[in-house]
């Protein structure tokens, strides 16, 4: 599954970042295989999603979260 399909308040472990021009942006922010992310907030009507990763809360668009392959934990 990808991070955009994580249910609210659930966590996932990152498996890989799918190829895209944004891959490097995601990786430099720290989205790396093995990290744990938790979906904490959802903007209404398919808006951005906010994930807690370690000490940071990060906002991503749904299409950007879809680039992060995770397994739910």
């Amino acid at each position: 599954m990808t991070a955009d399909t994580l249910p609210l308040n659930k966590s996932g472990k990152i498996l890989e970042i799918l190829p895209s021009p944004l891959k490097i942006n995601l990786m430099e922010l720290g989205f790396l295989p093995g990290k744990k992310i938790t979906l904490q907030h959802l903007a209404p009507s398919g808006g951005p999603m906010a994930f807690q990763m370690e000490e940071t809360l990060l906002a991503l668009r749904k299409s950007e979260a879809a680039l992060i392959r995770v397994e739910q934990i």
């Binding site: 021009p21 944004l22 942006n25 995601l26 922010l29 951005p48 906010a50 940071t56 809360l57 990060l58 906002a59 991503l60 668009r61 950007e64």
Partner: peptide, 11 residues
């Protein structure tokens, strides 16, 4: 350029 959000929500 690709548009992206990817931002931090600081404390």
């Amino acid at each position: 350029e690709k548009s992206f959000l990817l931002s931090e929500l600081p404390p």
